[in-house]
Design a protein around this nucleic acid. Sequence first.
DNA 1: GCAAGGTC
Length: 915
Amino acid sequence: MPKLLMVAEKPSLAQSISSLLSNGRAVVRKGVSPPCSVYEFRGHFQGQNASFRVTSVCGHVNSLDFTGRYTSWELADPAELFTVAPTEKKEANPKLYIVKHLQMEAQGCDGIVLWLDCDKEGENICFEVLDAVNGYLASQTNVWRARFSAITQVEITTALANLIKPDKEAAQAVDARQELDLRVGCAFTRFQTKYFQGRYGDLDSSLVSFGPCQTPTLALCVSRHDEIQAFRPENYWLLQPMVVLPGGVTLSLDWDRGRVFDREVVLALLAIARSATNAQVMSVTSKERTKARPLPLNTVELLRVGSSALGMSPQHTMQVAEKLYTQGYISYPRTETSSYPSSFDLPASLRLLTSSSEWGDLARGLLEEGLNKPRKGNDAGDHPPITPCLLATESQLGSEAWRLYDYICRHFIATVSPDLHYLHKELSFWLGSHAEHSAMGSEEIGGEFFTATGHYLVSPGFTQAMPWLGLGPDSALPDLVVGSQVPVEEVHMLERQTSPPNYLTEAELIGLMEKHGIGTDASIPVHINNICQRNYVTVESGRRLKPTSLGVVLIHGYQQIDPELSLPGMRAEVERQLGLIALGQADFRSVLDHALDIFKRKFHYFVENIAGMDELMEVSFSPLAASGKPHSRCGKCRRYMKYIQARPSRLHCPQCGDSYSLPPGGSLRTYRDLSCPLDHFELVLWVGGPGGGGGASRGEAGGASTGRSFPLCPYCFNNPPFEGMRKGQGCPSCLHPSCPHGERALAVSRCGSCQTGLVLLDPVSGPRWIFCCNRCPLSIRAFRNASRVTVLPAQAAASDMEDGTFGCARSSLGVCPTCEASLVRVEYPNSAPSPLLNSAPLHIGCMFCDSALSPLVDSPTVRVGSEGSTGRGSRRGGRRGRGSGRSGWGSGGQGEAGRGHRPRDKMAALAAYFV
DNA sequence: GCAAGGTC
């Protein structure tokens, strides 16, 4: 019996497809890739019995990147990225083991059916899957593609019965897009970033990025900004008569001319209107109008609502929606489709909601009266619109997820509800001189027309589910008939000013991006998030996006040098050319080479004319040499370097012209006027900002948010002095054999939590002394109020051997004989009784084993998450540092003479202490 | 430290 492997684009689809094809009888098991389950069942294929194995990938298997020296910002010239730099496909997310997973499942299969999404990206993933299973399938030729436009029984079974072949040309169009985006984006980004960061000190952005989607997105925001700047208010005037209705109520009328910008004209018209003592009713109209029910909900609309109604960023809206989806409360939230498939069981979805206290009445009412036929929007052939799948309560979801879920439910009910119907009534009035005063005859000789409008609700329809879209209370109009007259109380002449447009709301921007074809439903939130993170725009109240000086200058610069770089049409044109590849009308290589050639020329022209951008930059930003405050001395020229705190924070030496990167965030202090023994740069103390996520460890770049601090040498931090050290490490990670700030001088023991790091004394933490792991978030408080705490160097300890301050008698070379931790020397001030044995002022011993010291040491704690909460260190508590390319102390022949001694693996005492 | 596109 043939066995077929079937691969979907995502785990949820593998489940749906297997369920539809097996009538729910598929047997599920885990695969190598944690998120990708495998479903197996028997059925029929091409007229014979077959066994099926259905699994999935998670989006793209591979992603494109440069290789070798071209990944380096220092080694490669950005211009080389257009043609010279080779690229390679790497596994997109190695942690998911997708390739291994596919290879395992392909074994023993006679053929493969590709169930990737039916778009260009899906076609590309087909070939990524085929690449992965190449050589693992029993047959090279049994390769099929399923073409489906909805996840329904009919669609899926029909697709299986009408398999086609994967479309190489569509896949190549995506390959071309990937390569083009990578080369162009990285070349411009690297060039701009290095150029501007090398010249200005207050850009406050760690990356001056450029991209074919993000840049036009920013341009849309800047365009509105320019409109606002260019706006000059104008005066205008309008007439507003007040008439007295039967019964004595006054009613203000709207002028049919609207706004008039010529004051003299308005004055003349005012005189005419004022000449009337009565307003005459010229016409009475009443028309039924409707307000249409919404289209079924797709992703972009959800993002717009999330931003404008719920105040949530698009990125966050998607996170919340994805969680609702994985918990089973809503259908798949990434879809372009705003049309329910004909097979969609609308009543079933509505029945889910009947027991709800919020919308149960509405749902039951609709089920009893019959659902209204939903409107048909776009059918992109991907997933059905977003609908509720399971009834939830606010307490189950929490208030934020609940608000989104509540919206999705209300929107769904609204789509199967009738339109809103209302009556729109208009009364037209004439104010002026009457014919009877005219010798000429019956016509009016001069007068102005005014209107009063009112509305009456006929039926609320869908606005019962979405009350915020309702009509509001009826605004009734008096029952006047044509020809009747009402007295004019007064005619006001109002002076007003035109007002500028406001900044773009996020919802408006999403709409514009969709209109211009910038990004996709899945990537729109990413692009908006990017321009915020790069400090190109800020989110103001009402989620309006206001460009920063940096954002404005960049776009104005592009407009001056090469306007096409930021025009929204640029992306569309590239997509059009790529479309030709997909249609087989153009060759992959020639389209790609042509596009790369164009952008390469644009790049060179941009580089040559960057002075134009500089002129704009200089108006808003300070030169690097004039930025920052003098802070600490340069090891090369011994003059003071300046500390620039704005992103990217760094030390800049105006004399040497060099800049030294610092860990992101936090702030910098001088460090006791100490200098690095290697390069004589003054050491600085980096102090992490409060809050933020944990995880980064002491002396590691990226520890910005841990709230920890560590000393670093600005030069060594950027140029690791010893083999085995990485860039971005502070003194506590330095392998210097004798420097008093390196790990050898501060290390007490190997960390029992992560097993890879060392527990080091923080020499500036007193009087609340703290020991921290230099790899994981573990920390230990100890010896509170001690005046001085030091870790004993091995030899120095020997000289104190026979002196009574030693707790651990017979210990040799400053090492605890029980646990092999280095000994510490603890001194308390004379001003108060010491907590040591006999109130001794000084004691040397093992902080873990010595009976005089260990009571003064707290239990280890591990910072968890962003709250900075602490918990007992446990086997699982500590996170591993990034890599552990370096062995623990004393190994590898590095300075064995210093503190070299290899701890035993079974440090029973320590392990018991930590665990 | 780069892009945009999938999806977790």
